[in-house]
């Protein structure tokens, strides 16, 4: 991969990360917030893989951490969706503004 430098891949992953941040802060629907979190986790994975490829090609650490992050993202999505479905039963809505029973 001599044509593409590490910086170019990092810029793509930072762009993806901040798109995820934007989505997380502007959406109120919980499922779309979850999608934004997935985008951010993907940006982190691209970072790990790119650093492994360009700076530490003699080790596989970035690859293993990417695998662990994917596993944790799957667990997180399962728990988040079960919480969202439970919340929907209680409030008949999945807006994050509706779930305000803790407000004093």
């Amino acid at each position: 991969m001599p044509d593409i430098s590490l910086s170019q891949i990092l810029i793509v992953s930072f762009g993806l990360f901040f798109i995820g941040v934007y989505g997380f802060l502007t959406r109120r629907n919980m499922i779309t917030m979850l999608m934004a979190v997935e985008l951010m986790l993907n940006a982190v994975n691209i970072n790990f893989v790119a650093f492994n490829k360009y700076l530490f090609p003699h080790k596989g650490d970035g690859l293993f951490f990417t695998i662990f992050i994917i596993v944790i993202a799957a667990a997180e999505a399962a728990v988040a969706i079960s919480i969202i479905i439970n919340l929907y039963r209680k409030f008949k809505s999945i807006d994050s503004d509706v779930a305000d029973t803790l407000r004093g």
Partner: peptide, 18 residues
């Protein structure tokens, strides 16, 4: 980037699962 295993896991877990 020649990370075929990660690409396969990405497709199976993210696209097929999440």
């Amino acid at each position: 980037l020649n990370f075929e295993f990660i690409a396969a896991v990405q497709i199976v877990v993210y696209v097929g699962g999440i």
